[in-house]
């Protein structure tokens, strides 16, 4: 049990060299590797935290955007619904208006058609009535009736009012042509004289009178010159009736 001092010194030197070498080859690289790994882990954890925070932020953003999108979609949907409702109402209103116009037009057309038909019927009726009347009166026309017609004409001529007489006098006076007396049948001489006398009495003076026969008068007498006509005949009545009916059906 002795100490070899050279060995002691050698071992001290050996140990110090070993300390230096192990520091270089063992502790430093290993501790460095561990530190780097820990740093990497902490970096990755920090990155993960950052990414998590970013992801959370993005998630929140997306949630917010989704809410906004939903709101916008709902707004747009409501707006579209409102617009479509308004448009629908407008279209409905247009259709109603057009339907009203069409109905009015239809009513008017129906009314016009009805009136046209009514008019046609009235005209037809009038024509038929007049045809029947003319035919019936023509059938029953006779000498006696002609006499009554001449009488009626004379009464009418003599019973003229003053202003009417004046018109006839003026018309007949200014006219140099002969007066024409038309009748449906040939007048007898007496009747011709009576008429001539009556005319002369009314006109005042002797006028040249021509007598003509015109069967279309049916029955009656017509006194005419170019500018004036005085008549009593059934045809005239029928013409007057036709005129009245035509005016009534307009």
């Amino acid at each position: 049990m002795h100490i070899d001092w050279f060995t002691v010194i050698a071992e001290v030197i050996n140990f110090l060299i070993l300390v230096w070498l192990l520091k270089k080859f063992l502790y430093k690289p290993v501790l460095k590797a561990i530190d780097e790994r820990e740093k990497r882990i902490s970096d990755q954890l920090r990155d993960a935290d950052t990414k998590k925070a970013e992801a959370k932020k993005e998630q929140d953003d997306f949630k917010g955007k989704n809410i906004e999108f939903d709101k916008q979609r709902n707004d747009l949907m409501n707006k579209a619904v409102d617009e479509s409702n308004k448009k629908g109402e407008k279209l409905l209103e247009d259709v109603r208006r057009q339907a009203d116009i069409l109905r009015v037009n239809l009513d008017k057309a129906l009314k016009d058609s009805y009136e046209t038909q009514s008019l046609e019927i009235a005209n037809k009726t009038k024509e038929q009535v007049l045809i029947i009347t003319r035919k019936a009166l023509a059938d029953i026309a006779s000498q006696n009736l002609e006499e009554q017609s001449v009488n009626s004409f004379l009464n009418k001529l003599l019973g003229l009012r003053e202003n009417e007489k004046k018109q006839i006098i003026d018309a007949f006076k200014s006219d140099a042509n002969p007066l024409i007396v038309q009748s449906a049948f040939d007048l007898q001489e007496k009747q011709k004289n009576d008429i001539s006398n009556a005319v002369n009495e009314v006109v005042g003076g002797k006028r040249n009178i021509q007598f003509k026969t015109k069967p279309s008068l049916i029955s009656g007498v017509v006194l005419s010159t170019d500018g004036y006509k005085l008549a009593w005949n059934i045809s005239e009545y029928l013409d007057s009736l036709e005129k009245d009916i035509t005016e009534a059906t307009k």
Partner: peptide, 9 residues
């Protein structure tokens, strides 16, 4: 096992 080594340490 050498006292020199242990003494050195």
């Amino acid at each position: 096992g050498s006292l020199s080594t242990t003494a050195a340490l």
